[in-house]
């Protein structure tokens, strides 16, 4: 484990333990707000799924399950690499932190790339809500709602991923060899954030992609 005496301690804290626990509580309180942020979207989904079950089933069938499952696997992989980055930080391994953060960034990049492909497919198929929406199906207007929620939710999720990637780049840069000693807490709270992003997708995936597969 990294030598505690070299880890920076902010002036307003008494000791490392207080700093560490306070930082963890702060991050969890922030994640609490993130839960409610996505909660609003899930509520909208719940309301409209309840109202228009057939339309949702039909619209969900237009999503690409292969790409969705692939992305889920990629994101889970990125959670693992992030957990390993946190582990490396606690063990004081600067190289490990940088390597595993880069791996996470690459995984995130793959996810976002696949998402971009999916979005472009939707655009070509006329499934983007708005002036060019073309999917009539049997339930017409109500399927547009599904796609509004699809783009809203996955878009918000992707935005959170982009922010996460930015933060990872910053943290990886700080952990580069020959830089001042960094606090493992930084990587740890980043890890909490990234796992949260994974959690959101764990619920988005079945609710968006797997609805009507059995019909």
């Amino acid at each position: 484990m990294a030598d505690p005496s070299t880890i920076p301690l902010a002036h307003h804290f008494e000791d490392q333990e207080q700093q560490h626990e306070t930082t963890a509580i702060g991050m969890w309180a922030f994640l609490l707000s993130e839960v409610m942020f996505f909660g609003g979207l899930f509520t909208a989904y719940l309301v409209y799924r309840n109202r228009y079950p057939e339309a949702f089933l039909e619209a969900s069938g237009k999503l690409d399950v292969t790409l969705g499952t692939l992305n889920t696997a990629v994101l889970i992989g990125s959670s693992l690499t992030m957990a390993l980055a946190v582990r490396a930080a606690h063990m004081g391994s600067r190289g490990g932190v940088v390597r595993w953060l880069l791996a996470t960034i690459i995984a995130a990049g793959i996810f976002l790339g696949v998402k971009a492909v999916e979005y472009s497919h939707k655009f070509h198929d006329g499934l983007v809500p708005g002036a060019n929406y073309a999917f009539k199906g049997t339930a017409s207007a109500d399927t547009e709602l599904f796609f509004a929620l699809y783009f809203g939710a996955t878009g918000m999720h992707a935005l959170h991923m982009v922010i996460g990637v930015g933060l990872m780049a910053v943290v990886a840069w700080r952990w580069r060899p020959n830089n001042v000693v960094q606090h493992p807490d930084g990587v740890e709270v980043l890890g909490l954030y990234w796992h949260f992003v994974d959690l959101v997708w764990i619920f988005l995936f079945p609710l968006l992609y797997l609805l009507g597969r059995h019909v």
Binding site: I25, W28, A29, L31, L32, V35, M36, G39, G40, F42, T43, L46
Partner: peptide, 13 residues
């Protein structure tokens, strides 16, 4: 905190 998140999410739903 984690439990509070779950609780208030359920209340919202």
């Amino acid at each position: 905190l984690a439990s509070a998140g779950l609780l208030f999410l359920i209340i919202l739903f």
